[in-house]
Each structure stands twice: as structure tokens, then as C-alpha cells.
Design a protein around this nucleic acid. Structure first.
Lengths: 232, 232
DNA sequence: CGCGGCTTTGAGATACTTCAAGAGAGGTGG
DNA sequence: CCACCTCTCTTGAAGTATCTCAAAGCCGCG
């Protein structure tokens, strides 16, 4: 039987990788592919959790905000990552596409039921969730205890590691040049800073010869060791 | 057969609650109870993850730090909570007892193997991990975007909800008076502030009549609505 | 009573924000 | 192809929340 998953670009990296063909057929039946344009929101904080999804392509952000409009980005989602809140009634974060994105969506109830019948899938999801929890807690150190420059340096280093093309190329280590899927305000919302501070820090790093900024969203790391040093 | 779990105080709230008697006997065989005195550390960040545990009694903190000694508390662990990093080689946080604590510990390898054979246990663990992840991400908003006073007010409100005696008393809602398991420096390490700022904020809240501080570690909330308002 | 650790309070320093313009980039239409 | 517009980003100057440094107060405990 031929199904969409056969040609799925994240087939071997998403949580689905633990499923055999029959199981994949069953999962495929309850899901569908959806395209989201940049800036569009897939689910809202506080809304009831109706959907979960696998990311096929693109980058999305998870964010929370205060009543008066301050925003904090709490997670960045890449291809093969899972989004949504299974086994829970409410979505706790807003999910918004930063680039055009393709996701494989499931009604939460359907997915929950399927997962409960497939322990291997739940196990994979558990592993991912544990990793995400470690990552979130590590980010709390950055938010709570690092200076603005340390935050920025840490951020650039993390991006150089995470934005590696997840394509066919064998793992080539961190990139020395990459295009951010964020504008300055979004970097500020990730680091808990203001847009002006972000701009000043980037200019300073550029003037110090640590990085180069070929265009608005491109970054080239010229002196990784120094950047590392500034990350605290 | 009589086992320790029969009289376990968290029997119905810890992840073990999904196990039947036979399973509990098996799990009991690979675990043992251990007492930790206040201030003692159970596992260290970066060390390999040898243990996992259920908390029976007491309060512990999860923390990470920078090389130069700055610390951020990233989680607080109460009775019936699970600690450690199953299915992963390294502990990502340091776990330290804040009060004298009793925990039910397992060698990580033993626990991993047991969990893989008991999907219901993994499911329960997944649910907990998802909840913890939501909590951690919510805390990121506090760390990144809230003012010192907003942080303190949010903290006091959260404590009044989480420190509810988990004993036999039916759920009685948030406490208006409680004893913190933290000193001032630890509150600072939770909120990403300095000890002096923490002290000043508490005295201000007291002078404003919003709270009372009967002793060093006791807090009484006098005007919950105002505290809520100051939490942002 | 006196000692040591924790906490409070004060005064001054500063990192980051806020407010306010100006410059640059990218897109659109003439 | 250039002029224009808008949106984002940069830069500057001033303000302020929080930190740092320093000293004194409190409290439990031997």
C-alpha cells in the first residue's frame, strides 16, 4: 500500500520512525498534511488543545505572553519535531510559523488514542519530551542569570548548531554561516531583551570582528572561540 | 505478599499508582528507600545519570549553574514527584535536598528496563514530563519578561498553591499562611534576582500590608487580590 | 553571653530600557 | 529604472530598575 509517509522527508527522524508499515498506514489515516504560511498561528495559548502535529518543513515558535502584551518565546520547532499537547485539555503555548511550514496534523483525541495503543510511539514521545524539558531548563539559566552579551553569544552558538541542514548531508558540525528565521524583535523575545539591545549587541560583535552580518538575517561566525568565551 | 509500597505515603499519587500489586512487588525489588539530609546533593549536573527516584517526603531543588558560580534553580520537587533522567546518559541538573527528604531510588538501568516493559508506567511518566515542560516554559516568561516585583508576587502565589499539605486533608485550595523551604538566597536563585533585591521586595510587600512575615521563613498572604495584581 | 550565618538596609554604580530620530532595505507603482 | 513608501533596524541620549559594595541588625545556638 502506498501512503504519504513513504515519501516523508522526516520519516526517519520524527516520532513515527518507530512505527512499522502497518502502523504507519493506520496513523496516516487519521492525519493530514497542512501548509502554514509565515506568520500564521497554528494554535493559541489557553485555547483547548485540539491538534497535535509533526513538523515536516519550516521553523515555528512556541510563545507565551503576559496580559499586557509582553511576549516570551519558549521554544523553537524544527522539522521532525513534535508540536502540541497530547493528553491534556489546554494548549499552554501559542504556536506560530516563522517561515512557510508544512506540518502533519492530527486531531488530538485521535492521536491520543493511537498513542495509547502503541507504546513504542509513546516511548519515543517520552524521550523527546525529556530532552525538551532539559533544553527548557537549560534556557532558564540563560534567562535568569546571564548578561545581555552572554545571552546573545549563547544564542548565536546555539543557532549555529541547530540550523544545520537536516537534509541528506552527513552531520557536518556547527555552521559558520547561517540565515536566522527571526527578525530582531523575535531574537529579543527569545532572550528576554529589548530590540534595541539586541541590535546594539550584534553591532558590537560585528565591530569587534567576532561575527559578520552580510544581510539582515544572515550571520557569519568569524571567531567562534571568542564568541564561546563571551557566552559566559 | 507484604512490601514497603503497601504503606507508602505517596502510593496513590506517584507514578507507581498505575501499577497493580504484582508489578509493584517487582518494582519494589529493584528500589530502595533512602534518607537525604537537608543540603545534601543526590545527583550532580553533568555527571552520568545513575539514579532515578520517587520523592516520598521533603522538598528538593533542581539547579544548573554557570562556570563562574552563578546558579539558577530550574525546578522544585515535592512528595510524589519523580526525579532523575531516565533513558539518558547524563543528569542535566543538580538535585539537592532543601529539607530532610526520603526518596525511593532505583538504578537508572533497572528502572529503564522496568519502564519499557510497563507501558502504563511510561504513560504516566510521559504525562508528568509534559506537565513539567509546560511549567518550565511558563517559568521562562517570568524569568525573561517580568519585573522583580512581578516575579516575587508570582512566586509567593505559586508557593501558596504548591505547598498545600498533600496529606489526608481534602484539597483546601491555596494557603494563606505557609513556611517556605527556602532561604533568601534560594528565592533569588529561583527568580533570577539578587538576595538584596529579594529582601527589599519582601519588606516592601510587608510594609504595604500585602503580606506578613511572622518569621524568617514564614509568609502570610493578607491581600491576595493585590498580590495577584502585582504579579503582572 | 558571644559567635557565625542569614537578613536587612543604605548609598552609589551600571546594565539595560525607554524614548526619539534617522538610516537602510525591500517592495510597488509610475 | 527610479521615486516613493513602509517596515525593520540602528544609533543616540536620558532614565531607571536592579545590582554591587559595605555595614549593621537579627537570631538561633553552643
Amino acid at each position: 500500500m502506498s501512503i504519504a509517509c513513504d515519501t516523508c522527508v522526516v520519516r526517519n527522524r520524527a516520532i513515527c520512525s518507530v512505527l512499522d508499515t502497518d502502523e504507519l498506514v493506520a496513523l496516516n489515516r487519521i492525519g493530514r498534511t497542512r501548509t502554514i504560511s509565515a506568520g500564521q498561528t497554528l494554535m493559541w495559548e489557553g485555547e483547548d488543545s485540539a491538534l497535535v502535529a509533526n513538523v515536516l518543513d519550516g521553523v515555528l515558535k512556541l510563545s507565551t505572553g503576559t496580559e499586557d502584551g509582553r511576549e516570551q518565546i519558549v521554544g523553537i520547532v524544527y522539522p521532525a519535531d513534535f508540536i502540541g499537547r497530547p493528553f491534556g485539555a489546554r494548549a499552554q503555548q501559542t504556536v506560530t510559523a516563522l517561515t512557510e511550514a508544512r506540518v502533519c496534523v492530527f486531531a488530538r483525541g485521535d492521536f491520543d488514542a493511537f498513542a495509547r495503543e502503541h507504546p513504542a510511539l509513546e516511548h519515543k514521545l517520552l524521550q523527546r519530551t525529556l530532552t525538551e524539558l532539559d533544553r527548557a531548563r537549560h534556557w532558564m539559566l540563560l534567562l535568569g542569570r546571564k548578561s545581555a552579551m552572554e545571552k546573545m553569544a549563547s544564542f548565536l552558538l546555539e543557532m549555529s548548531e541547530r540550523l544545520v541542514q537536516n537534509g541528506c548531508t552527513p552531520d557536518a558540525g556547527p555552521l559558520d554561516r547561517f540565515t536566522l528565521p527571526f527578525g530582531r524583535q523575535q531574537i529579543a523575545d527569545i532572550l528576554g531583551l529589548t530590540i534595541e539591545t539586541v541590535s546594539r549587541l550584534l553591532t558590537k560583535l560585528k565591530n569587534d570582528g567576532v561575527i559578520d552580518l552580510p544581510s539582515r538575517r544572515e550571520v557569519a561566525i568569524l571567531q567562534r572561540d571568542i564568541l564561546h568565551h563571551r557566552a559566559g
